[in-house]
Every structure is written in structure tokens, then in C-alpha cells.
């Protein structure tokens, strides 16, 4: 057996389980009356996000997420939709990152980010039961209890608990991301999965601002064993506000020397028809890592960029 055959042979169990997990995810959404849809990978105008570097495809781009097209479908009157697709983000590579990864996104109308947290609890616990037959997952020598409800912690509380600083000060001192990455994330989702929610409004370019607290956006992230699994929010449905935020983000990109994208005009004009809705993006590769007890993303895909 040569090296390549051996490498792929060793992954057989993980890849089998991966296929079952994806099937179980699909079953969950179909059983809950979501329509599976597909949107193009090649798009002319991604959402401007300063910290997501896109991959060029001729004069277009490989989508960094299917978000804009999926929201256009919601705006046309679809109530519950989901998609499992590849997403592309240049230069993201590490133990938890691949520049081409598999994303699950789901959206439903008349819901908000609190509903998304419940969706996550139901989805992940149902998948785990189907795959492992139970709600306790061994991961890296610890047992994680997936029985809902899971822990919920505001970003403000997490900063005060683990870093003794408030998020506004961290943003002012330009160390929000460092504190999140190196001081907070490792403590989240250890005994049970944890939702971090109510992010500073500047950290969410497509999320709705909370009506009872203008300083935060209705955004949440799921962590299991210190690993970020999903990110979702109550959708911003005000086209003017969205355009303003796109402009601010584009300015930030230009400041970083990134050439701006064309404005996603069709998305902005669809937004005026969009009802109240919420949507979540979940990294399937990372969920597979948790459910197969692997500590590198490399272990649960057949090929990494380096093995091509």
C-alpha cells in the first residue's frame, strides 16, 4: 500500500461517519418541513466583509457563504430553507480551518436568534442520537452532555468572566479578537455546548440591532469544547441600514488595501420584501470533528489543500 492509499484507508471510519452525519442533518431539516435549495458558487458580488478574503473566479468570486442568495429566496416568500454547500475563504488554513469547507445554512421566517439556539439544540442532539445512539459525546478525553437546554452566555458576561474587561474597552483597545480567541473560546462548551450571544453591534454587519439594547446585535455563536461550531443572527431587513453597513465595511476593506466588490444590488433590492427572519451557518466539518472525536479538520476530509 503506498502512502496515499494508507492515508485514505486510515480515514475510512471518519469518512463513513461524516456521510452519515450529513445524511442525518438532511433528514432533520426535511422532517421539519425545510426545503433544500442550491445557490450558485460563482457570484458577481459577495457581501463586503473586511476579514473574509474571497477567492476570485474570473471576474466573479467563489461565494464565501450562500447568505445573500438564500435571503433573496426568503424575500420571494419561501418560509423555511436550508442548504449544504462548499464555501471558499482564501488563506484560512489551520487545525480548524480549510480554505474550502462544507457549510450548512438554514433560514426561517418569523423567527429570531433565540429560535436559532433551539434549532441548534434540536439538530445536534438529534444527529448525535442517530449517529452515536446517545447524547453524551466523548471528545478529547472529556464527556460533553448534549441534552438540551445548553448554556447561554452573553458576550459581555464572557468578557467579564474570563478576561475581566468589557467588550467595548476591548474594541477600543483593538484586542477584541485576541481576547475572544486566546482567553474566552477555550472555556466555552466544555461540559455542555455554550451559546455566546448579544455581540457588540460593530461585530455583525448583516444582523439586526437588539431593540432593547442598541449596543448589541442579535447574533449568537455555538461553541462545543472550545470550538466555534456555528454563527447566526436575527436578520437585518432594512435595506437602507444594510447599504450603510456595506459602505462602512467597504471603507474598512479599502483601509486594509483590499479592492472593493461590486455592490450586491439585487440583494439590496430584494431586502425590502424580506419578512422578519433568522438564519444560522454551521461548519459541518467541525461538527463532524466533535462527533468523531478528532482534533484536526484534516482528519475528517479525504483531501486537504496540501494533499492535492
Amino acid at each position: 500500500m503506498d502512502k496515499e492509499q494508507k492515508r485514505l484507508e486510515q480515514k475510512k471510519d471518519a469518512l463513513r461517519k461524516r456521510a452519515k452525519i450529513i445524511q442525518a442533518i438532511r433528514d432533520f431539516f426535511v422532517e421539519n418541513d425545510y426545503l433544500e435549495i442550491e445557490t450558485p458558487y460563482i457570484i458577481p458580488a459577495p457581501a463586503p466583509e473586511a476579514y473574509i478574503e474571497t477567492v476570485r473566479a474570473g471576474n466573479s468570486y467563489l461565494h464565501p457563504s450562500p447568505e445573500l442568495c438564500m435571503k433573496r429566496i426568503l424575500a420571494a416568500g419561501y418560509k423555511k430553507i436550508f442548504q449544504i454547500c462548499k464555501c471558499f475563504r482564501a488563506k484560512e488554513r489551520g487545525g480548524l480551518h480549510l480554505p474550502e469547507f462544507t457549510m450548512l445554512e438554514w433560514y426561517s421566517v418569523n423567527t429570531d436568534y433565540m429560535d436559532l439556539m433551539e434549532d441548534c439544540e434540536n439538530l445536534v442532539s438529534s444527529v448525535s442520537k442517530k449517529i452515536n445512539g446517545r447524547l453524551f459525546v466523548p471528545y478529547r478525553n472529556r464527556l460533553i452532555d448534549l441534552t438540551p437546554p445548553w448554556e447561554r452566555l452573553t458576550v459581555r458576561d464572557a468578557f467579564s468572566l474570563f478576561a475581566s474587561i468589557d467588550p467595548e474597552t476591548a474594541i477600543r483597545q483593538d484586542c477584541f479578537d485576541e481576547i475572544m480567541s486566546f482567553k474566552i473560546e477555550q472555556h466555552l462548551g466544555i461540559k455542555k455546548p455554550t451559546f455566546l450571544y448579544d455581540y457588540p453591534s460593530s461585530c455583525a454587519s448583516l444582523a439586526r440591532i437588539k431593540s432593547t439594547d442598541q449596543t448589541v446585535a442579535e447574533r449568537c455563536e455555538l461553541f462545543i469544547s472550545g470550538i466555534e461550531i456555528s454563527n447566526g443572527f436575527s436578520e437585518l431587513t432594512d435595506p437602507q441600514e444594510q447599504e450603510t453597513r456595506f459602505r462602512q465595511e467597504t471603507k474598512k476593506m479599502q483601509g486594509l488595501g483590499i479592492s472593493p466588490y461590486p455592490t450586491p444590488k439585487n440583494f439590496l433590492s430584494a431586502l425590502k420584501h424580506m419578512p422578519k427572519a433568522a438564519g444560522m451557518a454551521l461548519g459541518i466539518d467541525r461538527l463532524v470533528m466533535i462527533l468523531t472525536d478528532k482534533d484536526r479538520i484534516d482528519d475528517i476530509v479525504a483531501f486537504t489543500p496540501e494533499s492535492l
Binding site: 476579514y51 487545525g95 477584541f176 479578537d177 480567541s181 486566546f182 473560546e185 455563536e221 466555534e228
Partner: peptide
């Protein structure tokens, strides 16, 4: 170690060794 908090910046955490003095330190 590469990390990137959701919607945040890419962070590259390095353990560096001075090739002359041998001193080791972390820098992001």
C-alpha cells in the same frame, strides 16, 4: 497556530525561537 474568531480577524499565533540566543517567546 492559526485562529479566527467568527467574523473576526485572522490571528497567527507563533512560538518564536531566537536563532542566536535561543530565547523563546510567543507572539501573535
Amino acid at each position: 497556530q492559526f485562529s479566527k474568531p467568527g467574523k473576526g480577524q485572522s490571528l497567527y499565533r507563533c512560538k518564536l525561537k531566537n536563532m542566536i540566543s535561543g530565547i523563546i517567546f510567543d507572539r501573535t
